[in-house]
Amino acid sequence: MNTILENEFLSPQVFRMKVETPEIARKRKAGQFIILRTCDTGERIPLTIADADPAAGWIELVVQVVGKTTESLSKLGPGESICDLAGPLGRPTHIEKLGTVVMVGGGIGIAPAHPIAQAMKAAGNRVISILGGRTKELVIMEDRMRAASDEVIITTDDGSYGAKGLVTDAIQKLIDEGRKIDLVIAIGPPVMMKFVSLLTKKYNIHTLVSLNTIMVDGTGMCGGCRVTVGDTSKFVCVDGPEFDGHQVNFDEMIMRLAMYRDQEKESYDHHCKIRPLPNN
């Protein structure tokens, strides 16, 4: 069960992994995630299902190494298996034909954007994907996003690939060109999602964001994943992970993500002394 079929690095810190898990592969829909543990003393971490093949029975994860668990996961090779894997969790993205959908993927956020772009295109939408990264090697899965989109725009902070600038610049440009945008879906670092939402709010463009709060159970039992949306508290694992970007309190969410920063470093140093913690 949960046998790893493939594992390869896409960039120095990002790997993609195919895992055999027929039931989840059959059941999952775009926008959903799994929770896994790599060992019996391990932490439960959520990861989006980036792709799946129901016939062959695998799901694909695209993961950025940021700490202890993602590091140990990256070391599992074909034939080895993942100790615990639960899913599919969260609500699937609501897919419907709207017209033009702009998919914004920042860094590792491109992976979760991929299945949504696929589904939106299959539903008959015109999909414009904006892929952003700090630098060229962080723009992952370009080929597959091209296959899932009608148009692809690439931005890098340092200009090493595509247009120099931020994803928000690319959105602004589309707006300035007078393109009619029916929906923006932004997935990436919380700060990116915050600024995309601020921008689209000005133009009244409906915007969904996919939140990556800290989770434990992923079933609505602990409330650790809560965020403020509008004026209520929502549990990202069961009410989300997608929410109306114009309603999300990003500042609060960003602070909550830092809750265990010191202990995360301690855990990493305790287990992974060989490799320095990547800067991010």
Binding site: T41, E43, S267
Partner: peptide
Amino acid sequence: TRANLMQAYSFPDTDT
């Protein structure tokens, strides 16, 4: 849950 199920009592030997 963190303390019991995830054995955070024993952090950093356990990961949570």
